[in-house]
């Protein structure tokens, strides 16, 4: 048979089509348009003008530096904390499941909300100063988030992002850990490995695919960090995404904004490639 009947791949194709069209329409085409926009003047002629304006802008280099600095600070901390949380949540002790749920709570919290939550803590009369005074360490409040000290703002952003987005990493790792922790962990225990050795020689190597996934996702999102920076720093601390936003909304210039978004895309692509290469997994190593 088969003759005269629809081929077998027709149904899956039909089911995939709407989603594929939608993604083409709202991801592929805009990306191409962004490319055009970034190489055009507002008048509509081809030009490198948007890139020139972006690069010569005094805020460009700080924005690039801050974005990369944030990633370099946030992600290692998140990785360690997330792994700790995941190991706690996956242990066999009582209450582990409950802690898992608690640790996952920030998943539902937006960047903007997280920024505001930590603003309540870091602001001049915020809870951090209240606590420091309660401990008797200070008399007058310290100004953590000031125009003069972008570093303070940067560190506040690091704290807020670690607080909010560690949950994403943890959940990804938990998914991977569930497969490892049973027999392999016990086997390592039988052969006398201590906690750190178990982590070093069993968990981390086997967890590589999950680590890779978690790192890629987190880095991709981190390149887009925006609302938390605005909430904690006003406009003081430029990052790439906030510059794209400002150029579009404030300066009404979609061309330079598009150029910024291309920079973000390029960095994302490089980072993804980097992780895929550095953490590459040889299939035979996973034994599945």
């Amino acid at each position: 048979m088969g003759k005269g009947k629809a081929p077998e791949w027709l149904l899956p194709l039909a089911l995939l089509m709407p989603a594929a069209l939608f993604l083409t329409l709202f991801i592929a085409i805009p990306s191409v348009q962004a490319l055009w926009l970034a190489f055009q003047t507002p008048g509509g002629s081809w030009s490198l003008e948007p890139f020139r304006r972006m690069v010569t802008d005094t805020r460009f280099l700080p924005a690039l530096r801050n974005t990369i600095l944030l990633i370099a600070l946030i992600i290692p901390i998140q990785l360690v904390m997330a792994l700790t949380m995941a190991l706690i949540a996956q242990s066999r002790r009582r209450g582990a499941g409950f802690f898992l749920y608690l640790y996952a709570i920030p998943l539902a919290i937006s960047e903007l909300a997280a920024g505001l939550v930590w603003l309540a803590i870091f602001t001049e009369r915020g809870y951090l100063n209240v606590i420091l005074r309660g401990l008797g360490w200070i008399e007058r409040p310290i100004v953590f988030l000031s125009y003069e000290r972008p570093l303070g703002i940067l560190l506040a952003v690091v704290v807020a992002e670690v607080w909010r987005a560690t949950a994403i990493v943890m959940v990804t790792l938990v998914a991977g850990l569930q497969m490892i922790l049973g027999e392999y962990w016990e086997a390592a225990e039988v052969f006398g490995a201590n906690l750190l050795q178990k982590i070093r020689y069993v968990v981390l190597p086997l967890l590589r695919p999950s680590l890779q996934a978690a790192l890629i996702i987190r880095t991709l999102f981190a390149f887009q960090t925006f609302a938390v920076v605005v909430a904690l720093g006003g406009g003081v601390l430029p990052v790439l995404a906030s510059e794209a936003y400002t150029w579009y909304v404030g300066a009404n210039n979609p061309h330079v904004a598009a150029a910024y978004s291309l920079v973000i895309l390029a960095l994302s692509a490089v980072a993804t490639g980097f992780y895929l290469y550095v953490l590459r997994v040889r299939p035979e190593e996973m034994g599945r």
Binding site: I27, P30, Q33, I217, A241, I264, S268
Partner: peptide, 23 residues
């Protein structure tokens, strides 16, 4: 197809929303 779907993650919000705003 699966890879393509995963790839879409790489495109930042900015690159979608700025041209789409114009459109």
């Amino acid at each position: 197809v699966r890879m393509g779907i995963l790839m879409t993650r790489m495109f930042p919000m900015a690159i979608l929303s700025i041209p789409l705003a114009v459109t």
